[in-house]
Computed example of a mutant assay.
Amino acid sequence: MERSIKAVLFDMDNTLFDFLEAKLTACKRMVEHLGGGDPEDMLGYFLRGTPGFEDLENIRDYLLDNELYSQEDYEVCCRIYETIKLEALVLYPGVKQTLEILKEQRISLALVTDAHSNNAMKRLERMQIKEYFDIIVTNDMTGAKKPDHKVFYFALDLLDICPQQALFVGDSPGRDIEPARIIGMVTAYAAYGDRRHYSDNVEADIVLSGITEVLDIVLENKKIEENVK
């Protein structure tokens, strides 16, 4: 890949850790408390799109639709959800190793997420990886969500690089890979984290079976660049 990669930009949820599994674990605990319901169905409410992916209204709607609602149970379920979705988080294998080596290679690192900064910081601190990132771009900073190109350009401007100097790593073909590719970034599809929309036909420069494969891309790029010099 004959480009000078100066920075790697990562999506967060389901790219660095399995957030869907953590949310499902939270749903299981809520169902246990309620003594009824189905955790997969409850998770489906969070995946509807409206209200948002982390909106507590999803819990209220599920309880009402399944005739399980009481104000007390709703409040308890909200507390369970907020606690367990963090406690159940697990980094994908090789995440810290990958971030450490990229930093050693003096590659700038950015996190670009649709999460609110409050939620993003809680997850990053829980996983103990916040310090690896030079910049963290969240929904409340940009006023937009992916696939809006504004989000990507916001991060690139902070890094002071052009799209052709950046590699974007994400699990969503539509929200991560396509917009990053359109504006000229190198793209790496985190297929290992895409449990909802996985496809063999994603138009990405690289398809990743694990996050450590990012190192192969960047280190090979640096080797080519050094040989040219």
Rank of each mutant, 00 (worst) to 15 (best):
D61W: 10
S199F: 04
L20E: 15
L43M: 11
L47A: 09
T98C: 05
V202A: 04
F152D: 05
A191W: 05
F53C: 05
L111Q: 01
P179E: 02
D73G: 07
I59K: 03
S172E: 00
F46L: 01
R181W: 10
V218I: 15
M185C: 05
V31T: 01
D157C: 08
E75Q: 14
A7R: 00
Y192M: 09
G44W: 03
G35W: 11
A26S: 13
V8A: 01
D18V: 06
T25I: 12
S117E: 07
I136Y: 00
K103T: 02
F19R: 07
E21C: 08
G94Y: 07
P93I: 05
V214N: 05
F19N: 10
A166S: 05
R29S: 10
K130H: 14
V218M: 02
L102D: 04
C162V: 15
Y69S: 05
T212S: 14
L68F: 08
F168S: 00
D38M: 06
R126M: 13
L43Q: 07
L167D: 04
D38T: 06
G193S: 03
L159V: 06
I206Q: 01
I5R: 03
T25A: 15
K150G: 12
G36L: 11
L124S: 05
K222P: 02
C162L: 11
D11N: 09
Q71K: 15
